[in-house]
């Protein structure tokens, strides 16, 4: 459900960019979503489509760029990829893995006209 307000924030970034960069229509939005960002890509698509109706981004394609979750193991010190926050360290099997990347959601780039 919070994907709806996140989608609205995406639209806000796009609209601000329109003012700065002077464009009137958005064709594609590249959105980076980290595996640990707590955002469901499909829910995001659904909400994005709803939120952009009647705006300069109506009908825009949403390209989701998935980034891997990264963690640092507090037990063995290794840097590992994790898919979820409760994943054990793939090197030593310990559960004390601190998220180190893939926690963010960012608007990367826009195709506009």
């Amino acid at each position: 459900m919070h994907e709806m307000s996140l989608a609205a924030s995406v639209l806000e970034l796009v609209e601000n960019s329109a003012k700065v960069n002077g464009f009137s229509r958005v064709k594609t939005v590249w959105l980076e979503i980290g595996a640990l960002a707590g955002v469901e890509a499909e829910a995001m698509r659904f909400c994005f489509e709803a939120v952009v109706k009647g705006t300069l981004a109506e009908g825009a394609r949403l390209e989701i760029v998935a980034t891997k979750g990264q963690g640092k193991c507090l037990d063995c010190g290794g840097s590992v990829f994790i898919e979820a926050r409760y994943d054990p360290c793939s090197l030593c099997g310990g559960y004390r893995v601190e998220p180190a990347g893939g926690m963010a959601m960012r608007v990367k780039e826009l195709e506009v006209e």
């Binding site: 995406v10 970034l13 960069n21 959601m105 960012r106 608007v107 780039e109 506009v112």
Partner: peptide, 11 residues
Amino acid sequence: SRMVQVEQDVL
């Protein structure tokens, strides 16, 4: 049509 870099956190 052109590309615009945004690189901004949604939150």
